[in-house]
Simulated scan of single mutants.
Amino acid sequence: MSSFPARAVIDLAAIRANVRSLASHAPTAQVLAVVKADAYGHGLLPVAQAAVDAGATWLGVAQLGEALELRAHGVTTRLLTWLYAPGAPLGQAVAADVDLSVAAPWALDEVVAAARAVGRPARVHLKVDTGLGRNGLTPAQLPDVLDAALRAEAEGAVQVVGLWSHLAFADEPDHPAVRAQAVVFAEALALVEGRGARLEVRHLANSAATLTSPELHYDLVRPGIAVYGLSPVPQLGGPADFGLTPAMTLEAELVTVKEVPAGQGVSYAHAYVTPGTTTLGVVPLGYADGVPRHASGAADRPGGPLLVGGRRLSVAGRVCMDQVVVDLGPGAPDRAGDRVELFGTGAAGGPTAQDWADVAETISYEIVTRVGGRVPRVHVDSERDEAVAEPQAEGAAR
């Protein structure tokens, strides 16, 4: 049992429900659940299994190491990884039946070499940059790389199984760039299939497009943040509007509670000063644990929201490395050991990750993924009302 006085509680039942809801938004497509970055901070292995249990037929990770970890723990679902540098151990991925994205000419060369060394064909997805300006083959590069891939396929070194891209403005579904990228993707698809590639999947839609742009679903959608119950389009609707439930609750215990006089400066540089006699509490989470320093509070600016004893309060003063302070109010009944909720489902007026994102002027993705490694992840299953024993990778931090 961890002695750390805070935890991130992840409800795997919410993960499953979210995956089922996303599948209902894209009934003609398979679902690839994106579990990169330790499942957006929620725990790679338990979340991957929950997503598969709910019907996800694919999983996706950015980094090769996470793909190999999933395979090492017996996850056999179709699996795609897409971000690697020259010299990466691609042979291990090919041997483990991990699909590989090809986003540059050199990448195809290395994938082919790895497949030849391993003695089995590599499954590849050609990634085309349709306008994001990030990773991917330019439309000008695609014909030559495609021809090389088809030659490698003819000799048995690769199988060209997918074509994919990523949207720049999916969270603004009416933005003209969405349509422009869709046109470029359709042209790339016509080229690839016109030259004889026998694709298993074509995929363009992330969470936002899965929820708002059915014309972009093709035969595979790749939801990420929505798997975790957070809205990728908060300006259009919150999680409940899309049938989603936030899966992570970040909570802690008050470690000290004390009465102070009016005029007491709070935390570094006294950005907050008590307006009257009041009670201060210390919450043992800080920026080393992922609490945004931009969510510090001052007299003219409430800090990050907190739920204490059923009351909606906020961070008072600067966020420190390991702790924040909350003004509990005069005569507050709270005691050391009482529970503080930083964010969760929003039930009973509690704060959400989106609330923290609004205060810190960022996005909910960052709020959940930045929760630090020393914060224990506790996986529960509210459908079964039980804690979940989680598999641990060798040498894993959690």
Score class of each variant (00 low, 15 high):
14 A>M: 01
79 L>Q: 08
17 A>C: 09
77 T>R: 14
93 A>E: 08
68 L>P: 05
67 A>D: 09
16 R>H: 10
54 A>N: 09
75 V>T: 09
9 V>S: 08
42 H>M: 13
78 R>H: 15
72 A>P: 07
50 A>Q: 11
46 P>Q: 13
84 Y>P: 01
45 L>M: 14
14 A>C: 13
6 A>P: 01
47 V>C: 15
38 D>G: 09
18 N>S: 12
5 P>M: 11
96 A>T: 07
64 L>P: 00
95 A>H: 11
30 Q>S: 14
85 A>E: 14
83 L>Y: 15
55 G>N: 06
65 G>C: 03
30 Q>Y: 01
30 Q>K: 10
51 A>F: 10
9 V>R: 13
20 R>P: 02
20 R>H: 09
11 D>L: 02
87 G>Y: 04
94 V>L: 10
86 P>L: 07
90 L>S: 05
53 D>L: 14
81 T>V: 13
97 D>E: 13
12 L>Q: 00
76 T>R: 15
5 P>D: 07
65 G>W: 03
74 G>D: 08
18 N>K: 13
75 V>N: 00
36 K>M: 08
95 A>S: 14
37 A>Y: 05
28 T>C: 02
60 G>N: 01
41 G>F: 03
4 F>K: 02
61 V>Q: 03
60 G>R: 03
94 V>N: 02
94 V>T: 08
70 L>P: 10
